[in-house]
Design a protein around this nucleic acid. Structure first.
Length: 598
RNA sequence: GCCACUGUGGCUCAAUGGUAGAGCAAUCGCUUCGUAAGCGAUGGGUUAUGGGUUCGAUUCCCAUCAGUGGCUCCA
C-alpha cells in the first residue's frame, strides 16, 4: 500500500475539493433567493462527496438541482480565491447577524466547547471564515486554493433530502443537498458506475428477480412473504446454523408468540419498550402482547425448576419470531422489518464460567458468519454509562473485561463505544456493510444484569447458597430477515452451491434430448441434488441466458453428442465451460463442493 | 414519525385534459437449434385507493395507502 492511500481523508486533496464544492454549492443556492430569505446551516465533506443543509422559503426541486449545478460550474470557472480570516466571536456574530444557525454554531464554539456537529471540543477553537467570490462561510477549512482547482466535469449533485438541524427531531427540518466530487471526470464516472453496480446487488431487486420474497400491502408493511426459492435458501441457512448449535452445546426450546401483560410488566418491557410493542389482544379479559423479544420466555424455562451449579451453563436457543413496531419511514426491504425471526439464545452461567462462555460464543459467532463467506464486519464494544446502569458495578466491570479479552483474543479490530451500552449490560455488536454502503447490525452478544434481578433468577451454589447466574443474550445472525438481506447482497444473488435453490439445470438442445435430460435430472435428484430441466421450446441460447440470469451454478447442456456418450457438458455461471463429464462424476464433484460449503 | 420524490398490465418503462402503448414475461403455433434473447399470433390494465375541479381526469388539486432517498430512531 502506498503512502498516498494511507493519507488521512481529512488531509487529502479530495477532502478539500469536496469541502470547497460544498461552499460553492451554498453560494449557488443562496443566489437563488432574496437576502434574508435563505439560511445556511452546515456543509461538510463526507465519504465520496459532500452535502450542505439549508433552511429555505420553498422546497427545492430536481430542476433546481440542475440549475445549481450549472451555476456551480460558472463559479468554478471564475477561479475565485478561497481566503481565510480569523475573527473574534463578536465579529463573527456581527457578520452572520441574519444567519441564526451560524450564530448558534458560533456560540457553541465560543462558550459551549462544541464543534459544528455538537461534538465536544478539548479546547476553545479559533473562529475563522473562508471566503470565495461573493460567499463567506464560518469554517475551519481547509479548502483548495481557488475555485478553479475543482474540475467542473467531476462534480454532480445527487439528491435532496430532509435533515433535522443538529440531528434533533425536535428542531427544524432542513433541506440537504447531497453531491459528489472527484479529481477528474473518469473518477466521477467510475463512482457513478459503482453506484449503478451496487443497485444490481440490492437485495430488494434480487429478491424480485430471483423470486425469493415479497411484501404485500394487504399483508402489511415490513412483513415478509418468503417465496419457495427464498424459503429454501433460508431453510438451508437455518439448517446449517441449527446443526452447529446442537454441536456446540445449545439446547433448543420453543416459546409462543404472545404472553400475558403481567409477564411484560415483570420484565420491564411495558415500562421501557412499550413504544415498540403492538397493542394488546384481549383474551377472556386478560391482556396478551405479541412478543418483541424472547427473553422472558427463556427465563421462565430456566425458572421452571430449581437449578444447581452443576446444571450450568445452560444455553437455550430458539429461532424466535418477534414483532416490533417500527416507524414507517425506517422500514427497508428485509433489513428493517416489523416481524422477524431471531436466532436467539440465552446463556445462563456461573461467575467462574463467564469468561470462557464469552470466548465460546464469540468464536461460535465468527464460525457461523465465516460459514457464509462473511469475513468483513465492523465490531463494536459498548461499555457502561455510569448515569444509567442497572446491577452491580463489579459485575459490569468483569463482564466488560471478558468481552474485551474475547475480542482481543480473536484479533478483531473493534471500536469502543464508551458509555454506549444499554442500562442493563455491556455488549459486543458485529455489523455488516450492505451493497449501498450502509451498516446493518447482525450479531449481538450482551450481558443482562436487569432481568435476573427482576425475575429473581437463582441457582444453588456448591456451598448450598442461592446465587444469581450471569445471563447473556445473544443473536448471531441477528434476524433471519436481515441476515438474508445481507447474504443476498454479499453473494450478489449468486449463492454458493450448498445454498443455491436450484443447483443445476439440464438444458436439452432439441426436444429429442428431453428424455435423456429427464434421466440425468432424476439421477442427480436421487443423489440429493436440486435440479431442473428446461424443456421449453426455446433455443439453447435463450435457456442459457435465463439460467445465467437466475445465477444457477451448473448448466448442463445435453445434445446428440452427450446422449451418445452418456455424459453432460457443464457450463458454470462464471461462464467457464468444463469438459464433458459422466453424470456420476459430476454428482461426486458437486457433492464434494456442497460438503465443503462452496 | 419528519422532509422530498414516486405509484400506468407479472416485470421494465412510454403517452395524453377527450377512458392507454412498447419490450420482456405468459399462452398457442411454427422452428429442433451446440454455450447470454429464433419467428409469428393471442390474451392481459376501472392508469394504487377515496374524494374534488371540469362538459370530460389516468393527466390538475386534496386526502389515504404503498414504495424510494435521506433525517431521527434502532434491546
Amino acid at each position: 500500500m502506498s503512502s498516498q492511500q494511507q493519507e488521512k481523508y481529512e488531509e487529502s486533496e479530495l477532502y478539500r475539493i469536496r469541502h470547497s464544492a460544498a461552499h460553492i454549492m451554498a453560494q449557488a443556492v443562496m443566489e437563488m433567493f432574496e437576502p434574508g430569505e435563505a439560511q445556511i446551516a452546515i456543509g461538510p465533506p463526507i465519504e465520496d462527496g459532500f452535502y450542505y443543509d439549508f433552511d429555505l422559503p420553498r422546497p427545492l426541486t430536481p430542476e433546481d438541482l440542475v440549475a445549481i449545478e450549472k451555476r456551480m460550474r460558472q463559479i468554478i470557472a471564475g477561479q475565485h480565491k478561497f481566503e481565510k480570516k480569523a475573527v473574534s466571536a463578536e465579529e463573527a456574530k456581527a457578520m452572520f447577524a441574519d444567519q441564526p444557525y451560524k450564530i448558534e454554531l458560533i456560540e457553541g464554539l465560543e462558550t459551549g466547547g462544541v464543534d459544528e456537529y455538537g461534538e465536544p471540543l478539548d479546547e476553545k477553537p479559533e473562529i475563522s471564515f473562508y471566503s470565495h467570490d461573493a460567499f463567506t462561510d464560518l469554517c475551519r477549512g481547509p479548502h483548495v486554493e481557488h475555485t478553479g482547482k475543482i474540475n467542473p466535469s467531476a462534480i454532480k449533485l445527487l439528491h435532496i433530502a430532509g435533515a433535522y438541524w443538529r440531528g434533533d427531531e425536535k428542531r427544524p427540518m432542513l433541506q440537504r443537498i447531497y453531491g459528489t466530487a472527484w479529481k477528474n471526470k473518469d473518477e466521477l464516472e467510475a463512482h457513478l458506475g459503482r453506484l449503478e453496480e451496487a443497485k444490481k446487488r440490492d437485495h430488494r431487486r434480487l429478491g424480485k428477480e430471483l423470486d425469493l420474497f415479497s411484501v404485500s400491502p394487504d399483508v402489511g408493511s415490513g412483513l415478509i412473504l418468503w417465496h419457495p426459492k427464498g424459503a429454501l435458501v433460508r431453510h438451508l441457512a437455518e439448517e446449517f446454523c441449527k446443526d452447529e448449535h446442537l454441536a456446540n452445546g445449545y439446547d433448543f426450546v420453543y416459546s409462543p408468540h404472545i404472553g400475558r401483560g403481567q409477564l411484560w410488566e415483570k420484565s420491564g418491557h411495558l415500562k421501557w419498550y412499550q413504544e415498540n410493542m403492538y397493542s394488546p389482544l384481549d383474551i377472556e379479559g386478560n391482556e396478551y402482547y405479541l412478543k418483541p423479544m424472547n427473553c422472558p420466555f427463556h427465563i421462565e424455562i430456566f425458572k421452571s425448576r430449581v437449578r444447581s451449579y452443576r446444571d450450568l451453563p445452560m444455553r437455550f436457543a430458539e429461532w424466535g419470531t418477534v414483532y416490533r413496531y417500527e416507524r414507517s419511514g425506517v422500514l427497508h426491504g428485509l433489513m428493517r422489518v416489523r416481524g422477524f425471526t431471531q436466532d436467539d439464545a440465552h446463556l445462563f452461567c456461573r461467575e467462574d464460567q463467564m469468561p470462557e462462555e464469552i470466548d465460546r460464543v464469540l468464536d461460535f459467532c465468527l464460525h457461523l458468519l465465516r460459514g457464509f463467506g462473511m469475513n468483513e464486519f465492523k465490531a463494536y464494544l459498548s461499555t457502561r454509562d455510569p448515569q444509567k446502569s442497572a446491577g452491580d458495578t463489579q459485575r459490569w466491570d468483569d463482564a466488560t473485561e471478558a468481552l474485551r479479552a474475547a475480542l482481543d483474543r480473536v484479533g478483531l479490530d473493534y471500536e469502543v463505544d464508551e458509555g454506549g451500552a444499554a442500562f442493563y449490560g455491556p455488549k459486543i455488536d458485529l455489523k455488516m456493510i450492505d451493497a449501498l454502503g450502509r451498516e446493518w447490525q447482525l450479531s449481538t452478544i450482551q450481558f443482562d444484569f436487569n432481568l435476573p434481578e427482576r425475575f429473581e433468577l437463582i441457582y444453588i451454589g456448591e456451598d448450598g447458597e442461592r446465587r444469581q447466574p450471569y445471563m447473556i443474550h445473544r443473536a448471531l445472525l441477528g434476524s433471519m430477515e436481515r441476515f438474508m438481506g445481507v447474504l443476498i447482497e454479499h453473494y450478489g444473488g449468486a449463492f454458493p452451491l450448498w445454498l443455491a435453490p436450484v443447483q443445476a439445470i439440464v438444458i436439452p438442445i432439441a426436444d429429442r434430448h428431453i428424455p435423456y435430460a429427464e434421466e440425468v435430472a432424476a439421477r442427480m435428484e436421487a443423489a440429493g441434488l436440486r435440479v431442473e430441466v428446461d424443456a421449453r421450446g426455446d433455443r439453447m441460447n435463450a435457456k442459457i441466458r435465463d439460467a445465467q440470469n437466475q445465477k444457477i451454478p451448473f448448466m448442463l447442456v445435453v445434445g446428440d453428442h452427450e446422449v451418445e456418450n452418456n455424459v453432460v457438458a457443464p457450463r458454470l455461471r462464471s461462464e467457464e465451460r468444463l469438459d464433458a463429464l459422466r453424470v456420476e462424476d459430476l454428482i461426486g464433484r458437486m457433492q464434494k463442493d456442497i460438503e465443503d460449503r462452496m
